[in-house]
């Protein structure tokens, strides 16, 4: 959790920039290592998000094989309580019945939570290990990458469109655009306003998660810099305890933040899909 490589690498700004740069392959800018066009891939984001998805699949597969009905084990109890919690949220907010919503909500909750959880791993640990393998840039938290959060929210948006058209029909959905905020006299403005409102749903979903996680990661980096930027000597006696206390405090607070963000993403998905499947707006 030290910033030693930052101070040797040329200052705090470089340290932060280095940590906030993805491992980009494909069409990337050679200087900034940022994606230069659509045809670039953030390899670290893809790797960590797929690895965490694989973790969910493997753990639930193993648990599914060893289910006990009489005396469930501690872990089974824990998973059942998460399942109950998500199912309760779906029952409370989703009108009617739909076999897709509860599994979708559970997947979103677990996956987003695990991706957010990568934030709690010491910021320098995995990039340092990767640098031994010759990987220069590594951003370990997939949800601090706008690509991940917007991909998830656009998937939800596609489902919103699908269910809107399925329940209301193409004409019924079109009618919603015509008469929604201001009545029948200003139809062009209504169309634009409703389009903006619909477009704002995926935008707010994706940007909220990205913003919260990015800011959290940045605070971890700044705390890590406290120790790294101090000179070796007497000052460390003051600075190192400060860093430890601040890091612990932010870590504990951040457990709340990552859970809350995963929860909000899940609940808003349920709410939006619930709005899409009710016929009267």
């Amino acid at each position: 959790m030290s910033a030693s490589e930052g101070s040797s690498g040329g200052g705090t700004v470089e340290y932060i920039q280095h940590h906030l740069t993805n491992l980009c392959v494909g069409d990337c800018d050679p200087v900034t290592h940022k994606a230069a066009s659509f045809w670039a891939l953030h390899l670290d984001t893809v790797f960590f998000s797929y690895a965490l998805a694989a973790l969910i699949i493997i753990v639930s597969w193993r648990l599914g094989r060893s289910l006990q009905t009489d005396v469930p084990s501690g872990f089974q109890n824990f998973v059942e309580s998460i399942l109950d919690f998500v199912a309760q949220q779906v029952r409370d907010t989703f009108p009617g019945k739909n076999p897709l919503i509860a599994p979708l909500a559970l997947t979103i909750f677990l996956w987003v939570w695990l991706m957010n959880f990568m934030d709690l791993i010491p910021v320098d640990l995995l990039p340092l290990l990767a640098s031994f393998l010759g990987i220069g840039y590594l951003k370990v938290v997939p949800t601090t990458d706008l690509s991940t959060t917007m991909a998830m929210s656009l998937t939800v948006f596609a489902l919103i469109l699908y269910y809107n058209i399925k329940t209301k029909g193409l004409i019924g959905y079109g009618k919603m655009f015509l008469f929604h905020p201001f009545g029948k006299f200003v139809i062009p403005i209504n169309i634009v306003m409703t389009a903006i409102e619909e477009l704002a749903k995926p935008l707010s979903l994706g940007l909220r998660l990205f913003g919260n996680m990015f800011a959290g990661e940045l605070v971890f980096l700044l705390i890590a810099l406290i120790g790294g930027s101090a000179a070796i000597g007497f000052g460390l006696l003051l600075v190192v305890p400060l860093q430890v206390v601040l890091d612990l405090a932010w870590l504990i607070f951040h457990i709340l933040v990552i859970t809350l963000q995963a929860f909000i993403f899940m609940v808003l998905t349920i709410v939006y899909l619930g709005m899409a499947t009710t016929s009267d707006h």
């Binding site: 907010t93 477009l199 704002a200 707010s204 940007l207 909000i264 609940v267 808003l268 709410v271």
Partner: peptide, 16 residues
Amino acid sequence: LMLISVGTILTSMILA
């Protein structure tokens, strides 16, 4: 639950 997102809805509608 919708009230949690009032702030982001405001900004994202402007952005949208």
